[in-house]
Amino acid sequence: MALLEITDLHAALEDGGKPILKGVSLTIRPGEVHAVMGPNGAGKSTLSNVIAGRPGFVVTGGSVTYDGQDLLALDADARARAGVFLAFQYPVEIPGVATATFLKTAINARRKAAGEPEIEALEFLKRMKANAKALGVVEDMLKRPVNVGFSGGEKKRAEVLQMAMLEPRLCLLDETDSGLDIDALRVVADGVNALRGPDRGMLVITHYQRLLDYIVPDVVHVLVDGRIVKSGDKALALDLEAHGYAQFAGAAA
């Protein structure tokens, strides 16, 4: 069974805004990594936001099925607890809430929903330290409020750290490479790769091919003007790098 099945998805901005997604279909099976590439304004971020249930968008047609259930029927927090994780392009600051406290609250929300007991303090610490170390996140950062005063690179590392801690089944990475220098990119990509597994699916959204040198996708989709205009294997990404998106300019119309 597919992990994520998007069928003819149409979405627009709320309050009669303009349509952004104009019939997107794709299927991610467990263990697969899909990349979505496309020019600015193609609707890449909207796609990840609509899957995650961000307010401000309305789905005007089509369906999203996750693990056999209608994902669009769930509230954003229920989707997250069901295993959908969005690594944000611009992670928001939450003053006063320590990163570790935040993570623990999120883990326990998930456990509570599953009828499991809260995570043991010791186990939590152990896992957090191990993951932090792997991602080069200094422990001091975990005591600091969520994303407050983090550099661009620190924010992205913290996103991947959260992903590792929350053990999602579906990871949506929204332009995780933006704002990262090459060293940081490698660390983040290593973190993501470590999470690849037979049960987990990933949707990696990026503008540049560069990220895909490190996170090698099974399938590459090209999104232009709200539609997937071409799908292929990783070679497609290199082709795009060489020839740009202009070749698809008329294709979406």
């Binding site: 995650a52 249930g53 961000r54 307010p55 401000g56 509230d75 954003a76 927090d77 989707r79 997250a80 607890r81 994780f85 969005l86 944000f88 992670p91 928001v92 600051e93 939450i94 935040f102 609250t105 999120a106 929300a109 998930r110 929903a113 969520v146 959260q162 929350l166």
Partner: peptide, 15 residues
């Protein structure tokens, strides 16, 4: 902010 709220919801924390 809506962004803060959504960030928490996206991590599975009820409203």
């Amino acid at each position: 902010s809506d962004d803060q709220l959504f960030y928490c919801l996206q991590r599975g924390i009820p409203q």
